[in-house]
């Protein structure tokens, strides 16, 4: 049980992929103009990470070493395409909002990295826990950035007006430069904590 918990907690916090390893920030920056987008994107990454970790772990004794990267890519692409279909069928406006960024989960280094570094060497349950932890850790970062950007940049939270009507929202937060600057400040804070832990 503690191994499951470790696999989960490592992904969620102790080795949070976005901050400790700066992986997969493409979509973290692109889709976080609205909190709702970030929630769906986080769910997508979590589901795909769990699914592909599970499949790769199940097949780990059979996958030939020389084509294993290709096999992992195909499995990941399959799960991503599945999630894309799900959004189109059951949440069409959101699939329009996220557009190609759902497909781009395929190249999200986190997922390929986890199948390669974890699922190939560990049992099915641990791999699913690892995928869940990494996915939720990624989603948490996404949601934090999205809250800052949506509340600060549009004055809304999940589409509801939260800033008083007179307050002028900071448009730059929604634009591309704002995303980079927020991410930079958050990364600074995280690196500061990391340094503090080491010293």
């Amino acid at each position: 049980m503690s191994r499951l918990r470790d696999a989960f907690l490592d992904g969620l916090w102790r080795e949070n992929p976005v901050f400790w390893q700066v992986l997969g920030i493409c979509s973290a920056l692109a889709v976080t103009t609205r909190v709702e987008n970030a929630l769906y994107m986080g769910a997508a990454v979590t589901v795909v990470a769990m699914g592909s970790n599970m499949m790769v772990s199940l097949l780990r004794r059979f996958i030939p070493r020389d084509v294993r990267l290709m096999v992992e890519m195909v499995i990941i692409a399959g799960f991503v395409a599945l999630f894309d279909l799900y959004l189109k069928a059951f949440s069409y406006p959101m699939s329009q909002q996220l557009g190609p960024y759902v497909g781009l989960i395929v190249t999200n280094c986190i997922i390929l990295g986890r199948t390669e570094a974890f699922a190939l060497k560990n049992g099915v349950m641990e791999s699913v826990a690892d995928g869940l932890g990494n996915g939720l850790g990624y989603s948490a970062v996404l949601v934090v950035i999205a809250v800052i950007r949506e509340v600060g940049g549009s004055g809304t939270f999940l589409g509801h007006q939260v800033l008083p009507a007179g307050a002028q929202p900071m448009r730059v937060l929604v634009a591309a430069p704002g995303a980079f600057i927020i991410m930079s400040l958050l990364a600074w804070a995280f690196q500061y904590m990391k340094e503090g832990r080491r010293v």
Binding site: F62, P64, V71, V74, G78, A81, L82
Partner: peptide
């Protein structure tokens, strides 16, 4: 190896 890859591709596409 290639046939393994082929089978995985076919199964994935079939499921899709």
């Amino acid at each position: 190896s290639l046939s393994f890859l082929g089978v995985v591709v076919l199964l994935t596409m079939g499921a899709l």
